[in-house]
Amino acid sequence: MTVEENTVLRTEDLRVAFGPIVAVDGVSTTVEKNTFTVLIGPNGCGKSTLLRTAGRLQDPDHGVVLLDGHPIGDLPARQVARRLGLLPQSPQAPDGLTVIDLVSRGRDPHRRWYEQWTDHDEQAVDEALRVTGLTDLAHRPVDRLSGGQRQRAWIAMALAQRTPLLLLDEPTTYLDVVHQLEILELLAGLVRSGRATVLAVLHDLNMAARYADRLIAVRDGRIVATGTPAEVITPPVLARVFDLEAAVVNDPENGRPVVLPRRRAPQ
């Protein structure tokens, strides 16, 4: 298999500016099939904008995003939505909307307006509810769920979309450590079983190091380092990306790097 066939998503020299502020500054990177790739970087570094541009929520000022080798802007929106599922940061459900109704909406790109709900749709929704542990809460309104349950409901909606590629912007924000683990286990499981490729923005470095196959460290709109967690989570890279002085040890159980923050690095 050639490299190209393995690349699900590729960005070429992406540049996004909001007025005078350049959020993404010439980013070229790839996401390989069946990997869990995580974007890390300080607040305001452009990682979220990069993810949004990759998921065509934001048009780049320069450069191109290729989905399975095709410029994403040239593909019909519905076709993109069948290949790429996307969960933006802290989405809001309308009051009173039930979990199952929310998750069912993930099937929208698979149905033309005249097409009926099929067994296949039903199956996709049931499975999304099951793997996110929401089957028993299916008829509960989303606004009455706890933060962790709510986040899982949105992830279930993205899963019901059944896309080979998932883009998630901070899927574990506001969650306690156990719920974070649950969600990341779920995503890593999808990747391991060959059902999905995941690109996510995460804030917790130790969680990123533990679950990612590949890390992309971003600062000031540029990629500072990419590679396996062991290659990226090192004191010199952390200093360059976060201005963080830190010790890095290895988790005795899985050998992944663990960050022990010390102080802000001197400028």
């Binding site: 949004r52 998921g55 065509r56 929520l57 019909p76 929106a77 519905r78 076709q79 993109v80 939505a81 069948r82 790429l84 599922g85 996307l86 969960l87 933006p88 989405p91 809001q92 459900a93 309308p94 909307l97 109704d101 929310l102 909406r105 993930g106 929208d108 790109p109 909606m157 993205a158 979309q161």
Partner: peptide, 16 residues
Amino acid sequence: DVVGLGDDVSRGLGRH
């Protein structure tokens, strides 16, 4: 139905 989930989500689901 989809518009109610916000512009980002509805774009993600392939709506304009």
